[in-house]
Simulated scan of single mutants.
Amino acid sequence: MIIHVDNVKKKYKKEWVLKGINMKVEEPNIIALVGPNGSGKTTLLNCMTNILKLDEGSITLLDQPHTDTSIFKEVSYLQDNRILYGHLTAYDHLKFICDVQKIPYKKIKEVTDRVGMSSYVKRRVQNFSLGMKQHLLLAMAIINQPKILLMDEPLNGLDPTSAINMREILLQLYEEGTTIFVSSHNLDEIDRLTHNIHFMKDGALLKESLKDMDSVTYSIKTNDDDQANLLLKENAFDVQLQKNRGITFSERDVSLQHVMKLLHDHDFTIISVDNKVEGAEKRYRELFEEGSV
């Protein structure tokens, strides 16, 4: 079992913030945690990493109690930038993690290149923009190549290009076998990351998946989108050519596998394939807008 949260309850003074949270993750996945401020998202993440003590229930990560500090060689938690030290450089932060976890220093260059912060790794954090701090937090979180990556609002302060890069890195980590548990208010990016969404409201878990709610929309870019679009339409595929997105279609109408095969058989080069599940915002409105049940 990768993650097992069993009837977890947490209260501040006399107010229950978490009211019996249950969750199981049995194989690598990307799970999103969505809810308004005060719903208990950060409290749950802090409980999972033993920053906050549980009042009731239990948590295991990688089949080990979450209180076992040895698991944090394989579990990382990306928190907000208040954990950073302004008088230190980005390199100082990463070097400290390497020293504690006995990671070779060569990993610093690898991870800063991957995140895209090599040009300012020797600068002091007090001179960083919000987006640069988010890059550093990500580098700190993945330098140990974790099996579980917990993330609290990782998209805060990122410009659109950086947000896209963040998404691509997270998808790559997932493909490499990392389970990612991410809290975010950015519903558009969440839709692009995963359909496994946990909605939280007033300390309770309301919804565990949008898998069957909405269809995935695919966008494919090729070496010649105009000709590829014509070929697909000639073969009765229900597709559209959209500016800046390439050829788009819904999985309800068209099989991605069939599209890819036809393009491959006609020697088109696939440059990129993007997918988006149109569902998080719709469900969020149902659950949290005024007047919803």
Results as ranks from 00 to 15, higher is better:
3 I>P: 05
5 V>R: 06
8 V>H: 05
11 K>I: 07
13 K>T: 09
13 K>S: 13
15 E>S: 09
17 V>L: 04
19 K>W: 07
20 G>Y: 02
27 E>M: 13
30 I>N: 01
32 A>P: 09
34 V>M: 10
36 P>D: 02
36 P>G: 09
39 S>K: 07
45 L>I: 06
46 N>L: 12
46 N>Y: 06
47 C>Q: 00
48 M>A: 08
50 N>P: 09
51 I>F: 04
51 I>R: 00
59 I>R: 01
60 T>H: 07
61 L>A: 14
64 Q>L: 12
64 Q>N: 14
65 P>M: 05
70 S>K: 15
74 E>G: 03
77 Y>S: 07
79 Q>S: 15
80 D>N: 10
87 H>I: 13
88 L>M: 14
88 L>A: 00
91 Y>A: 02
91 Y>G: 00
92 D>A: 04
93 H>G: 06
96 F>K: 01
98 C>F: 11
102 K>I: 10
106 K>T: 15
111 V>K: 07
114 R>P: 08
114 R>S: 09
116 G>I: 13
117 M>F: 12
118 S>M: 12
120 Y>T: 04
123 R>T: 03
130 L>N: 06
131 G>Q: 08
135 H>P: 07
138 L>I: 12
140 M>A: 06
144 N>Y: 00
146 P>R: 00
147 K>Q: 13
148 I>F: 10
148 I>M: 07
151 M>F: 03
157 G>Q: 08
161 T>F: 10
163 A>L: 00
165 N>P: 08
178 T>W: 02
180 I>W: 01
181 F>V: 10
181 F>A: 05
186 N>Y: 12
190 I>M: 15
190 I>F: 09
196 N>Y: 10
196 N>C: 02
204 A>V: 13
209 S>E: 13
209 S>Q: 09
219 S>H: 14
219 S>Y: 11
227 Q>N: 13
227 Q>C: 02
228 A>F: 11
230 L>V: 13
232 L>H: 04
238 D>S: 08
256 L>G: 00
257 Q>F: 05
258 H>C: 00
260 M>I: 14
261 K>H: 06
262 L>G: 02
268 F>W: 04
270 I>V: 15
283 R>P: 05
284 Y>K: 11
286 E>F: 05
287 L>R: 06
288 F>H: 12
